[in-house]
């Protein structure tokens, strides 16, 4: 294959990926309520979003949920990845590593109906907190993956050994060397967990109780109602949010190397 043919293919490939998104973007400014015929430029759909109280409630719920899920997933993920990356080898390590990967391998619909039956059988009412716990479960592999990668890098850098050789105690090494150096990955993992929770639909669809309406659930019910430019505007906002979160994540997880972090401040 010639280079040129590949380039042309590359352009078409990315056009295919972005064409529907561009259509959606364009029609979010269209001054017509149903047809996709262009009737002039308007911001009214975005303005309408700001006045949709139900939608704003859903946004608030989603944000609270994502913060709770990210906090839990980061804490659990930090503990788990610290042990997996730094403790001496022990029996059962492989079992734990496999266990923490399960939420990634099992299709979400299975988790959704499984959690629904589990909460029903255990007679636990479906509330905000059961949903937050479920979201923390989905986000856990992401925080573990991010933090563990960083801790393994840190092990190679031998900075902790140096700290101990210089007389720092185990706790001091952990608190003053390991934790600060792992911090960017904890932030990156939390951000990833936040995004995973914020965008989750399938599990939420099954586990959210009657009173809990998240943003994706709200979008789902709007879509059930029909195509309106208001959804376009909303989807554009979500797209921008995803771009920001993804960009931030890449910056905080891969931007700086261990060595430059450890340089004189």
């Amino acid at each position: 294959m010639s280079r040129r043919a590949l380039r042309i293919y590359g352009v078409f490939f990315y056009l295919f990926l972005y064409f529907p998104l561009l259509v959606m973007f364009a029609f979010s400014f269209n001054n017509a309520s149903r047809n996709v015929v262009w009737r002039g430029f308007t911001f009214k759909w975005y303005a309408r979003l700001l006045h949709d109280t139900e939608l704003l409630w859903a946004l608030a719920t989603s944000l609270k949920l994502a913060v709770a899920a990210a906090a839990v997933a980061s804490f659990l993920g930090l503990l788990a990845s610290y042990v997996l990356a730094r403790h001496r080898r022990f029996r059962g390590r492989g079992f734990y590593a496999g266990l923490f990967n399960l939420p990634l391998m099992i299709p979400e619909i299975v988790m959704g109906v499984g959690l629904l039956s589990f909460f029903a059988k255990a007679r636990i009412p479906l509330t905000f907190w059961t949903l937050a716990a479920s979201h923390a479960l989905i986000a856990l592999p992401y925080t573990i993956g991010t933090i563990r990668g960083r801790l393994l890098l840190l092990k190679d850098s031998r900075l902790e050994e140096a700290a101990m050789d210089l007389g720092a105690t185990e706790w001091a090494t952990f608190l003053k060397v390991t934790l600060p150096l792992a911090w960017p990955s904890i932030v990156a993992g939390a951000l990833l967990a936040f995004t995973v929770s914020f965008e989750d639909f399938v599990t939420t669809f099954f586990v959210a109780g009657v009173g809990v309406v998240t943003m994706p659930i709200k979008i789902y019910s709007m879509m059930k109602f029909g195509v309106t430019p208001e959804i376009n505007a909303l989807a554009v906002c979500l797209l921008i949010f995803a771009a920001l979160a993804l960009g931030l994540n890449q910056l905080s997880s891969s931007g700086r190397a261990i060595e430059s972090d450890a340089g004189p401040a």
Binding site: F75, L76, G77, L79, A80, Y82, V83, L84, R86, H87, R88, F90, R91, G92, R93, Y96, L99, F100, L102, P103, I106, M111, G114, L115, S117, F118, A133, S134, A136, L137, L140, I144, E170, W171, F174
Partner: peptide
């Protein structure tokens, strides 16, 4: 912190593994 015994490792892993066991394996 250092994981001097396997017990320490299991103990620190227990919150995350219980989370997965209760909310995924048991469902």
């Amino acid at each position: 912190v250092v994981g001097r015994t396997p017990l320490a490792s299991h103990l620190l892993l227990s919150p995350a593994s219980l989370w997965v066991l209760v909310l995924l394996v048991s469902p």
